[in-house]
Design a protein around this nucleic acid. Structure first.
Lengths: 335, 335
DNA sequence: TTGAAAGCGCTAACAT
DNA sequence: ATGTTAGCGCTTTCAA
């Protein structure tokens, strides 16, 4: 180590000074000499060497286990990154494209590089099988879960999100609310729908009196479902959508039919999608999917000495009321 | 190395067979013995140690230099990742939040971890100052550039994109095209506008006869600008938008005014934004920003022995014609 | 208060 | 055809 040579001390001493090793007492004079040499040579410890010696790499593997690698991953990574930086860790990122085989392979690559921990994330909340290799380091699941909750998982509280969105509409005075759901097979869809029904029942209403139409989370499905709705004789006073994209499609279909939002019909989204929900006219009332917070939480739990508790951590999805919802018009007559 | 012990050979021999070191000839018998020991112990070389020895980490730093960390970064990373994996590299990801200070700091963190190269990316195409530290490894700029093009950069060919979008409209028969631009100060805005004007002139038209209104790339600005347009007495037969979000806003404004797209007016977007352009009704004709291709290119150029050529590499933005554009209605009368 | 020495896991040059 | 040795850059006893 040339810093040692320049400062006229041993490498060990340099290490002590640079790392402020506890329990080591270095004279102020030598410390200054070392520090000066460090500055002069622009010295930075080689973390690969450090890692080799200490058995840790100050690096966390982030596995995105899905075909899509978009907004969700970006937000979650941003949150996780933020916390990691604060702890001196960096994220080694990997994208499986949704293939379990790739996932297993890439986790091995991550492990070869001695990552200290793993964050295993999916885009659409869903069950996953965690490759065995992952068991060699602390691992936390983000937006996904294993069959017996054998690995700690961080999930959005979709039931509550669906419930609170519905309650907001009920409080506005709506009594006839249609739900245009996302893809029925998805976990989130079922959970949100459950929240919807819970809220209805909680208000003394019968869920069976409310129209539920199944879509697929795409904008065009919102558009199509609204047209289906329009073909019926009676329009609800409020429409809940599977997500913001569907809400935008719904908006388009409604406006095209000459129906004003929120004057004639209220529209509620879900996700609070970046650069969409707040920007659309009227600005969408919606429920925020707390991806950055989930990412942050994952990194924090990992830092807190590995997965403390097993099981699921549900993260609240806050309601965001904007301009696409209002009290229903006071016409009691049908359509 | 316990593999060596189990196989009854020296560590060097293990290294030779595991890495298939060229120029080393190992008897089939020992090779089998080693391979078996490897399998038995589930042995994987420690890449930190390998890196220490060989001076390379099989890791590339990806710096996202912007506040936003959304669709662009995700797509570019996906592209870069794809190529990296093929080469046996992994991406160490870092997010500066747009701060130069953070950027410098994080690059040092990356360098400490011995990254072999750097990809430095911005979300909105723009000039950047590359932290000095980055000069220590091969670096390539993605969607950004330095003042004297001192570092190789990969950029979308926005001028051509703007031109080809306009030409498509012209070929459809449009002679009165309005342009609702994005944020005027941005590089991309200027380039696309230039393409627009080039195309107009190329068709013997005078750009001055065409309305250009300045927006800011947000959906609501598309909506507002359309309303401005509607307040004038004469509506163009086609509207080009700064990006897809603005196009969606424009669509909403148009439909709200009872104007059919593309029957009465054609609408052209830009970006081909994931889960938006293709899903909206009518599906948006647009120009694709080739982010994944750009990411791939970056990784490839880095692999090809460091930045071969200096200067800029322009990547083509292909036109994507969908349902929001059509030939203009054959009414020659005004409004 | 400091230094010497060993060793983390691996590979490359040089023996044999 | 295989083994020996040295050392990548660092940290950590242990001894001085």
């Amino acid at each position: 180590m040339d810093v040692a040579r320049l400062a006229g001390v041993s490498p060990a001493t340099v290490s002590f000074v640079v790392n402020r090793t506890a329990g080591q007492t270095i004279s102020d004079e030598t410390r200054q000499r070392v520090l000066q040499a460090v500055a002069e040579l622009d010295y930075r410890p080689n973390r690969a060497a450090q890692g080799l010696r200490q058995g840790r790499s100050a690096t966390i593997g982030f596995v995105n286990h899905d075909v899509d690698f978009g907004e969700f991953a970006a937000s979650a990574i941003k949150g996780a990154h933020e916390v990691c930086i604060r702890q001196g860790n960096l994220l080694l990122l990997v994208n499986t494209g949704g293939s379990n085989h790739q996932a297993a392979q890439l986790i091995v690559e991550l492990l070869d590089r001695q990552v200290d921990a793993l964050i295993f994330a999916a885009v659409g909340t869903r069950p996953v099988v965690l490759p065995d290799a992952a068991r060699r380091v602390p691992t936390i699941l983000l937006n996904c879960f294993t069959s017996h909750d054998s690995t700690p998982a961080i999930l959005p509280d979709e039931v509550r999100g669906g419930r609170e969105a519905t309650q907001a509409l009920l409080e506005l005075g709506h009594r006839d609310i249609a739900y245009l759901t996302g893809k029925p097979s998805q976990w989130a869809t079922k959970a949100r729908l459950r929240g919807f029904r819970d809220a209805l029942r909680g208000a003394g209403l019968n869920p069976r009196d409310h129209i539920v139409l199944s879509g697929n989370y795409h904008a065009d499905s919102g558009y199509e479902l609204v047209r289906t709705l329009l073909r019926r004789n009676r329009l609800p006073t409020a429409i809940m959508c599977g997500n913001d994209r569907m809400a935008v499609g719904a908006l388009l279909g409604l406006v095209e039919a000459g129906i004003r939002v929120p004057k004639d019909v209220s529209v509620m989204g879900y996700d609070d999608q970046f650069q969409l929900a707040a920007e659309i006219r009227p600005a969408l009332s919606t429920v925020r999917l707390p991806y950055p917070a989930m990412g942050r939480l994952a990194a924090e739990q990992l830092a807190a000495g590995g997965p403390a508790r097993n099981g699921r951590t549900l993260v609240h999805c806050p309601l965001v009321m904007r301009d696409s919802t209002a009290a229903p018009a006071r016409r009691r007559a049908g359509s």
